[in-house]
Write a protein that binds this DNA or RNA. Structure first.
Lengths: 74, 74
DNA sequence: GTGTGACTAAGAGTCCGTT
DNA sequence: AAACGGACTCTTAGTCACA
């Protein structure tokens, strides 16, 4: 994607929250019915995810999409 | 997209902010280098936009992506 | 437990025009 | 000024095998 830092920051915020919950990528990905490899690429900031995907991730992490963006600095 | 209400709510929040700025769809779309037809579909909640696009829209509207989501109820 | 490359289907995003 | 259509290109969403 064009704005790589943006996706990276979001990915880092997601990863921070997941580890805070004490979950592995695999277990969390399973919980939100997402494939582990795809989820991994999101945390690494390789994907410019859609709002629907952001909502899914935020739900699984137990936070609102807006707070997730806010903690990432946006 | 699958979660139509989500996109609709975001679209409404974007439209509210644009009209608040007194801009037409065309003028605003031009300002952020986006095609008016596509921008129109976003306001109507027909598109599941990516985070990069959300950032672009928020920048043009002079608000943060997180506050845009928050005003939409997410 | 995680990262990566390769792959396909679906949808994001662009561009033209018409109502 | 805004909605809508078709045709098009590029990327996301999703899966798999392997490191």
């Amino acid at each position: 994607m064009q704005d790589e830092t943006f996706a990276s920051h979001i990915g880092s915020a997601i990863r921070a929250r997941r580890t805070e919950l004490g979950l592995s990528q695999e277990r969390f990905a399973d919980a939100i019915l997402m494939h582990r490899a795809y989820y991994s690429s999101i945390e690494r900031g390789e994907k410019n995810i859609t709002l629907a995907t952001l909502l899914r991730l935020a739900d699984g992490l137990g936070v609102t999409p807006s707070s997730l963006l806010a903690t990432a600095g946006y």
